[in-house]
Simulated assay, not measured.
Amino acid sequence: MTSDAEGHSRGPYAKSAARRAEIIASATLVFGTHGYRGGSLRQIAKQLDLGLTTVMHHFPTKASLLAAVLEQEDAADTDFSARSERDGFIASVLAIVERNLGRRELVRMFSIVSAEATHPDHEAHAWLLERYRAVTATYTDAIAADRDRGRLRAGDDPRALADLVVSGWEGIQIRWLTDDTDPVAAMRLLLTRLLEPAPPGSHPWPD
């Protein structure tokens, strides 16, 4: 049973966590509309009807808030390798594309901030480089493993295939954000043509 002291101690913590979540959600919208350079802590505070000092109590700098926003994207796919081993690379990628249909503003923010972060002086440049490195490495391993299992037949270098999947995916997301082109259908076609999945009903493991 939870004691009164424990209940009181959890109250302020829960309130602080909820406030941080509100600020991160607002920052996602502001950065997705104005970009990181164009957005400001003052805009985020105004959107939430808060004082600037309240926002800065949780996130002292805009860079620290950007880091918290970007962590949402990183945290979402921590189980990709296990899911890919179980369901296959193509199915696992399509599951994320389908999930992103409900995270439009986060995807928009990610696309805009990523474009800005291509400049070496941008606060998120190091994060973007590391994210491309980590995602490409994960996808390379998953594609190679699926090919060894007989799930995929494409004979090209797995690293080159992983690079194309990442680049194609980002382009498809931008089209979806712009004109509602179906990202699931487009990504399914890209993955099918690029990776050559084994026909349905074929043995998933090579002899």
Rank of each mutant, 00 (worst) to 15 (best):
T2Q: 07
D4C: 00
D4I: 06
A5E: 14
G7L: 10
G7F: 06
H8K: 13
S9I: 05
S9N: 09
Y13V: 15
A14P: 01
S16T: 09
S16A: 15
S16H: 03
A17H: 04
R19P: 00
A21G: 04
S26F: 04
F31S: 05
T33S: 13
G38E: 04
G39A: 09
R42M: 08
Q43K: 06
Q43S: 14
I44Y: 07
A45N: 11
K46V: 08
D49T: 09
L50S: 07
T53M: 05
V55R: 06
V55Q: 13
H57R: 14
T61P: 01
L66E: 03
A67S: 11
V69K: 02
E71A: 15
E71C: 03
E71I: 02
Q72G: 10
Q72F: 01
E73H: 14
A75G: 07
A76G: 00
D77C: 04
T78N: 09
D79S: 12
S81Y: 01
R83P: 08
R83H: 06
D87V: 02
G88K: 11
V93A: 12
E98G: 08
E98R: 15
E98A: 13
R104P: 04
L106K: 10
R108C: 06
M109Y: 05
F110S: 06
F110H: 12
S111P: 03
I112C: 01
I112H: 11
E116W: 08
T118A: 09
D121E: 15
H122L: 08
H122M: 10
E123Y: 00
L129Y: 00
L129S: 11
L129H: 04
E130I: 00
R131Q: 14
R131A: 10
R131Y: 13
Y132S: 07
R133H: 08
R133Y: 05
T136V: 15
T138S: 08
Y139I: 02
D141M: 04
D141S: 12
A145P: 01
A145G: 01
A145Y: 00
R149C: 04
R149V: 00
G150H: 01
R151S: 05
L152H: 07
R153F: 08
A154K: 00
G155V: 11
G155P: 03
A160P: 00
L161E: 01
D163L: 10
V165W: 05
V166H: 09
S167T: 06
G168C: 06
W169H: 15
G171S: 04
I172T: 13
I172C: 12
W176E: 10
W176R: 13
D179S: 03
D180I: 00
D180R: 13
T181A: 15
V184C: 06
A185C: 03
R188P: 02
L190C: 01
L191V: 03
T192A: 11
L194G: 06
P197K: 04
P197A: 02
S202G: 06
S202R: 11
P204D: 09
P204R: 08
W205A: 12
P206Q: 10
